[in-house]
Amino acid sequence: MNERASRRWGFLPLLRWGTFGRSWRAAPLVMSGLTLFLALLAFSWLGPWVYPQSPYTIHPHRLFLAPSLQHPLGTDDLGRSFLARMMYGGRPSLGVAIVGSILALLIGLGYGMASGLSPVWLDRVFMRILDAILALPTLILMIFFAAIVPLSPLSLILLLGLLSWPGLARIVRNEVLAYKERDYVLAARQYGAGTGYLARTHLLRSMFPIVIVNATFTVADLILTLAGLSFLGLGIQPPQPSWGGLLGNGSNLAITGSWWLILFPGLAILLAILSMNLVGQGLLNRLEGR
């Protein structure tokens, strides 16, 4: 992002190239979270280039091997390289959560803007509908849908995205209400600005920071939800690995004493959630400190 754009959208020098050291000092939480998350992405997408083992090839003669130099994260119950499975498992775990959050963000933005900019009675209708959706037990609903929809990364993205936008929509709508009567919005209206223009420029720019913060937390949420679903066998379907699925499988095999089958996927999920929460909290601190 260039300087002009980063200023326009609020998070200032953080996203500017060439100020890496400064950014670390200015926002250590954000930068450590971001670094951690980038490391996890690199592990999942670039890792297999460095460690070109198949996550699917079964080796019956090397089951349940503990981590060693030859098998850095050990092997699983079918003798598959656990490091390879961890790498390939990160792709759906992170990818579905990121794309699902973007979907939720877009729906939330649209719905929240529409609600906040509507006349009072229509806004109330929008909000009551939202209340009804928020009152639904999300996880149970997901389990229900996961049981009737053929599961694939794409269907999971849709499922998670479509079920996690209401919180964002409410935040967006509240931000619209907070900003739409500001003097600078009035000034623009006085120049004949239409609702669409106000939403696109003044409102979107004003609420961008807080929306990004919450989108970040949504990513963390979805990583956890997806891991939970996969743990229950309702997420990414085997043999395709995912961190939640690996954890579930590992805990089923706990009796064999294969601690690495539980530790590493658990750690990966923890770090992924932690990284996004660090970013979100760091950005939030900066916003509130301003």
Binding site: R7, R8, Y184, H202
Partner: peptide, 9 residues
């Protein structure tokens, strides 16, 4: 402070 959008140049 109110009438100029802080996110505009």
């Amino acid at each position: 402070t109110e009438s100029l959008n802080p996110r505009f140049t």
